[in-house]
Amino acid sequence: MQTKISSDKKEVIIGHDQPVVAIGERINPTGRSKLANALEQGDFAYVQNEALKQVKAGCQVLGINVGVSGADEAALMVDTLHAVREVTDTPLCLDSANPKVLQAGLEVYKGKALVNSVNGEDAKLKEVLPMVAHYKTAVVALTMDDKGIPTDVPTRLAIADKIFNEAAKLGIPTEDIIIDPLAMSVAADDQSGLGALDSLAQIRDRFGVNQTIGASNISFGLPARRAINCVFLAMAIVNGLTCPITDPTVWEIRQTLLLTDLFHGKDSFAMNYISAYRDNFPQDE
């Protein structure tokens, strides 16, 4: 199953038969005080630089989250979308927990955006899915609902199923729904890695859909987080993750993504890996 996302100039195809698509996570002020300051002060040059850095590191989609406390998030979303579009035609993933912000962004976005996110909560389904249908976007769907964030696999499957059904009622095709089965810190629950990996595999096998995951939660509370994130990413990709939300400006992350492509026979003569290496270590030439 393929999910297509686009800007007015460029289309990206996400699929199990495609190389992994990295959705850049860096334009998100949560835990990034410099970016939060830049957004607060309308310093879009900083945001544009973040966009370019990520594109250079191989991101094919850029996440855009401008949730800064006290700011007019809808206006900021619109301004950020324009600013980013000035420097790159990479398709964008509009990320907000506030549907009004998503609406404002979609109104000005040219192309088929990815919306982040809907989940199994009744209110969310009611607010977000009609927007997805109206603007004909793709959408990230989190496997959580009014009862909370499940740790087991069957509940995740049931929530995914519910979201597909609700979406179908509005004519949203299944391939436009990208499931995020939510990976939580293994430091707080040593079974959460297994739970996320099993969920990825079972959701892939049962629904065939694309899946994303925010891969850095997994390492919270443990030492040497970078290696943990890379190992988890690789295992998750084997189990059906096709478009992680991650940060390939970190070389090891980029390397992990490229190597999973190579090991899956998706990198002819290892050329993508080699050219990324040269790009990252120019002095070694």
């Binding site: 810190s185 430091a187 707080a188 040593d190 919270f220 509370g221 443990l222 030492p223």
Partner: peptide, 10 residues
Amino acid sequence: AKKIFVPEMM
């Protein structure tokens, strides 16, 4: 002091 980690604390 970052001598131990979340699972050890738990």
